[in-house]
Design a protein around this nucleic acid. Structure first.
Length: 100
DNA sequence: ATTTTGACTACTG
DNA sequence: ACAGTAGCCAAAA
């Protein structure tokens, strides 16, 4: 894998604001990763100091349930085991350009 | 070198 | 809502 892509993924995840979430596909596209699975791999191996709990599936479900209480702690209102993507999905264009 | 697996996504039934 | 299938890329066995 490319170190550059790896770093871009970490960077993309790092700039997801608290109280918002992004899908793996979003991060992949934002970071220029080949595919969403690569994002998950990076988070698992090098995401220990990143807000990986803000990265959820496109349908609002999460890969690891323990991120739900954690997201709630960041201010998200999660009625059940699913996140309201329509409301909490982070829009990278609305935040800041990216760079880097 | 080939196969399996994975913190994925989308489509179909 | 849930199970199966396909496409996808990289690391690990």
């Amino acid at each position: 894998m490319d170190e550059e892509t790896h770093e871009r993924i970490r960077n993309a995840v790092a700039r997801v604001p608290a109280g918002k979430v992004a899908s793996y596909g979003d991060i992949a596209a934002l970071a220029g990763a080949s595919n969403p699975r690569f994002v998950g791999r990076v988070l698992k191996e090098d995401g220990f100091d990143l807000p990986w709990h803000r990265i959820v599936r496109t349908d609002g479900t999460v890969a690891k349930p323990h991120q739900l209480p954690r997201l709630r702690d960041e201010g998200l209102e999660i009625p059940g085991n699913r996140i309201d993507m329509n409301r909490y999905r982070w829009d990278p264009g609305d935040y800041s350009p990216a760079k880097n």
